[in-house]
Design a protein around this nucleic acid. Sequence first.
DNA 1: AACGAGTATAGGACAAGTCCTATAAAAAAC
DNA 2: GTTTTTTATAGGACTTGTCCTATACTCGTT
Lengths: 198, 198
Amino acid sequence: MALEFAILGFLSREAMTGYDLKTRCFDDAAGHLWTADQAQIYRTLEKLSTRGLVRSRLVPQRGRPDRRLYSITERGRTALSAWLREPEPPSQVRDPFLLHLFLSPDLPDDEITSLLSGAREEYQRRLEHLRGPAREELDKWARQTGRIRDAELRRMTLSAGAAAARSAIDWVDDCIDRVRSGLPAPDPGGVSRVPTRG
Amino acid sequence: MALEFAILGFLSREAMTGYDLKTRCFDDAAGHLWTADQAQIYRTLEKLSTRGLVRSRLVPQRGRPDRRLYSITERGRTALSAWLREPEPPSQVRDPFLLHLFLSPDLPDDEITSLLSGAREEYQRRLEHLRGPAREELDKWARQTGRIRDAELRRMTLSAGAAAARSAIDWVDDCIDRVRSGLPAPDPGGVSRVPTRG
DNA sequence: AACGAGTATAGGACAAGTCCTATAAAAAAC
DNA sequence: GTTTTTTATAGGACTTGTCCTATACTCGTT
């Protein structure tokens, strides 16, 4: 569902190939909020094409495979517009890291701490990427294309990611403190009869 | 992957039926960080059973279907323990709401605002649930089971959700301000030639 | 000269997740 | 007194997403 409209959204600005969508759109512009597998992009383009929401023409090339250039149709614009007007409630949380932590009471304190520190590093990396390279690339794109309203909304999504990362870092720090200041002893009946590491 | 270990984790505390896992574990205890479809739980239990990580026995009942009570095996405990020791980096973000916002520059300001307010309400609901009912249920569970270390880690995951929701609310408020204080005019070449609503 | 990276598309296999349906009886709600 | 909910399991169909492979030529690097 979402991928279809993401593709329609990108094509509403510019005709593109599957490859462009993958590299410029999903990897670069929107990578911080939605990733897409290459194979899935091509298959979705095909599906959109049979439904008449996009259309494609072959652009011959020498020395490399012909480009299949996709553009949005009027029906595609209508479908996109209708979808955009539907409210989109924040999606359910489904977080493998939190699940891992949730299931970890049988690990010793130091392993829980290292679990948390690892996450902290990742959140930190993410935050720096969003505030640095990602932000600069977006500003550059805005200058080049002049799409300042597009850019403003994109900036909002960057700041959402940054806010989430910042708050996650604070949360991790708080958790590490709580572990250091003494977690309750292991509950009975856990998984820990399995021999410990080493 | 994750679901398998979530199930093993729950069964490491107590033998349960698929129904118990669905209602008590995934809906109630872990619903804020991982949901699971009923059909998927039963199928995963079957898979775990053929791999020898869980085992089941039928507990006959009168008047209602027999319960198939699953318990974790030693091999299951070993597998769980090994998985818990593997680091789990925070997962990639994939956020349909942010995608929607990202794709919305052709909507008029007031529709973007209502998009944001809708999200704010949902985050608010989530925050109140985590601080209120979810927290109370967890404390009750902790008192009843005496699993105070388990409970402490579970509390951490609740506070992660609460922190995320709080920061999302702040972010939304900031976005609404930015829209009110004047977003740049629509960029040319958008989707908006489609007749507006009404 | 060989090797990897970039440009470009596409199929196969599979895992994960969602939705719907069927069955069945007790208990609670209306 | 009828309807809905709760308890309990399980299959079918489907969508979404991931990973791997194949093809094919160019350009830059070692």
